[in-house]
Write a protein that binds this DNA or RNA. Structure first.
Lengths: 210, 210
DNA sequence: TAGATTGTTAATCGATTAACAATC
DNA sequence: TAGATTGTTAATCGATTAACAATC
């Protein structure tokens, strides 16, 4: 499995879930929690939870457990939710607009600063509070505002065409909903792929093999 | 890792990707392909590809490789893309409508037969060619049309409330965009979770740890 | 036949789980 | 101090990779 600074992605992918559960504990006013209690809530082993946390240093206290507030803040920090990445959305079709209105970017470490599309009929329209700009304007926009992350809600071929330009313009992270595979040609950028159609086919497998 | 009929989910999750690549080979008119050629295209080892295929039986021929058309059809069959599952979409907000218009259900083993929401202002409106029905009508609708899969584009609490009813009404597969965790209380249904906000936080981690 | 490539077994690697000493 | 629970090492489990005999 791919790594990122020595911590395996298997561990990293569990962090958002820990974060969500800790958030809800915090709202309930729970002050402390043990790895065993967490394991009950999450359906993981206590051992795994302790191992996971210890990848990033000792957040607990023997005989006591973990302070919820402290652990929550620690994970928030590890996930980098404090520093907001300037982010552009490319592709203002159905999916792009849904992602835009559905996602609370600020609470997840991102700040949306621009929305782009290449369809003339969309240019000038707004989505949320954002004017949809033409992809022709990407160059000048990026040179002025320096976004670091792009959300790609565009077809594979468009992603393939845009990728080198975007990287040259300073984009270093992609939330990629297209089937374009960054890892082959651009191994050094951060990419999180969401392949919705692959998920759906996986569900088909599961339903057909119950 | 969870299993499903003896084949590990690690393997199953690679099948849609194989399927996509085989589809494109088919379009190009490629007749045969070796595990080594596939490994080049996909960025996997040839060994893994052969192991994966052999979970489902021998599709290849020594000294020759794999027949593209045959392998494509085999994987399509394994994924269950031939039999269409009657599917309902619950939650016709931004995300639900995007999923509806974005997804080619038929080619992925599903047939959308109904769209539901609990917001009065949406009832009677159409999305695509579907009338949005009130969730109050779920019972009568399911008893009449017998859907087997539900796509949940609703908040966690709504999912939690609806889950037992839906399962009682015959739903056995869920494409779950909510944070409700089926596995705790309903271990016997097929669930494919898509936690978009978790993906986004994972991207935040990656960007911050480049 | 010789060359190629699979199917399959064995070896390695990594992730999860168990165990327990450290310590609050 | 006694009880609880972590941090951490060791054992297990599963997934990936390597090797090679089978065979087209």
């Amino acid at each position: 499995m791919e790594k990122n600074n020595g911590v395996s992605m298997s561990v990293v992918r569990r962090l958002p879930r820990y974060y969500r559960f800790l958030e809800s504990l915090l709202r309930q006013g729970t002050k402390r929690i043990s790895s065993h209690e967490l394991s009950d809530m999450l359906g993981l082993t206590a051992s795994q939870i302790r191992q996971d946390f210890n990848c990033f240093g000792g957040f607990g206290q023997q005989g006591y457990g973990y302070n919820v507030e402290m652990l929550y803040q620690a994970i928030s920090g590890i996930l980098g939710l404090h520093s907001l990445q300037k982010t552009i959305l490319i592709g203002a079709g159905n999916l792009g607009r849904a992602i835009l209105s559905y996602t609370n970017f600020k609470s997840k470490g991102f700040e949306l600063i621009g929305v782009f599309d290449n369809a003339s009929k969309l240019i000038g329209h707004t989505v949320g509070s954002y004017d949809i700009l033409h992809t022709d304007q990407l160059h000048s926009f990026c040179n002025k505002h320096h976004p670091t992350v792009a959300i790609l809600c565009i077809p594979q071929v468009s992603a393939e065409q845009l990728a080198p330009d975007l990287i040259a313009l300073g984009i270093k992270g992609f939330w990629n909903f297209s089937h374009f595979d960054f890892s082959r040609n651009f191994p050094d950028v951060a990419v999180e792929n969401v392949h919705l159609s692959d998920h759906l086919m996986t569900l088909s497998y599961k339903v057909n093999h119950l």
